[in-house]
Design a protein around this nucleic acid. Structure first.
Length: 300
DNA sequence: CATGCGTGGCT
DNA sequence: TAGCCAAGCAT
């Protein structure tokens, strides 16, 4: 058993404490949270989890880590291999950037994942959220970690609003107010706040009956007022370039050899849109054209 | 700062 | 059923 926190608490820190204690019993047993995983495994999980649900990441992460357990091993893989292994996690540019990050780690960080937030943010595909998540969950640093779940939790718990607005610079400071002062507890608070947003304080139909801080939640105390703000734009998919790019990549992932343009015509009828999307895939480095005009995943 | 970028499950 | 939603990032 861990000793009880010794320092005096602010009311906000008492909320953070309650979340830490709740997490001890309510946390999901996710493979990248096991004590033996290293910072590289955490980094890979965090990149995969950028906009992709846990349920789809889990099997992909297991296969990925078995195949490329170190930055150096991934750096040695070809883009084509990496794109295929990414499978249908979505946003395949993430796979390319993860490989580029592995190259940078191998060439400039002795094959290790740095613990420094600024060094992490300098890696391709690693932004404000992921850099802090890796420093915190991968290296045990007491960093504030703010993702969409945490912003929603803070919006309700502290500000009494139903939803978080757009990200603000003050988000990090808001979360820091809740964090317990002991470093080890602060680390667990960061993951606990995310877990509460993922399991209880969800975007639609929050499970307030299961919430450990419902009696101190500013949103509940205000009577759960509805969201007032600019209507969020709905992200369309059917018929967009994103769908067409996905179809084209589907063909190339399945092909064992470079394919002629004619073989890509089956992926989408509209030739203008198809051509535009193929061009954008070439620009992104997700597709490569051979000297004889065939198309393939980039062989590096 | 708004937009584009995949995919699939859920209500 | 047609949105809505899921541990963001780069531009």
């Amino acid at each position: 058993m861990e000793s009880l926190p010794g320092a005096v608490r602010t009311p906000a820190q008492e909320l953070g404490d309650t979340l830490v204690d709740w997490f001890a019993t309510a946390a999901r047993d996710l493979p990248w949270r096991r004590p033996d995983v290293d910072a590289w495994a955490v980094l890979v999980s965090e990149v995969m989890l950028q906009q992709t649900p846990v349920s789809r990441v889990e099997p992909a992460w297991r296969e990925w880590m078995a195949r490329w357990p170190t930055p150096a091993s991934l750096a040695a893989a070809s883009p084509a291999e990496v794109i295929r292994a990414w499978g249908k996690l979505g946003y395949p540019r993430r796979a390319l950037r993860l490989r580029e990050a592995a190259v940078t780690l191998t060439e400039r960080h002795d094959g290790a994942v740095p613990a420094d937030v600024a060094a992490l943010e300098a890696l391709p595909g690693i932004g404000v959220y992921t850099a802090r998540a890796v420093a915190c969950f991968g290296h045990g640093q007491p960093q504030p970690v703010v993702d969409t779940n945490v912003r929603r939790v803070v919006a309700r718990l502290i500000h009494g609003r139903a939803e978080a607005g757009p990200a603000r610079a003050a988000d990090l400071a808001d979360v820091a107010l809740l964090a317990p002062p002991e470093p080890a507890r602060a680390v667990r608070f960061s993951v606990a706040a995310m877990e509460l947003g993922a399991l209880v304080c969800t975007a639609g139909t929050p499970r307030c009956g299961a919430c450990p801080v419902r009696d101190r939640c500013a949103w509940r105390l205000a009577g759960c007022p509805p969201y007032e703000g600019p209507p969020r734009r709905v992200q369309k998919f059917a018929g967009t370039d994103r769908q067409v790019r996905g179809r084209l990549l589907d063909v190339l992932r399945a092909a064992c050899h470079p394919v002629p343009a004619a073989e890509l015509e089956a992926a989408w009828d509209d030739a203008v849109q198809r051509s535009r999307c193929l061009d954008s895939l070439l620009v992104d480095g997700l597709v490569e054209q051979t000297p004889d005009g065939l198309f393939t995943l980039p062989r590096g």
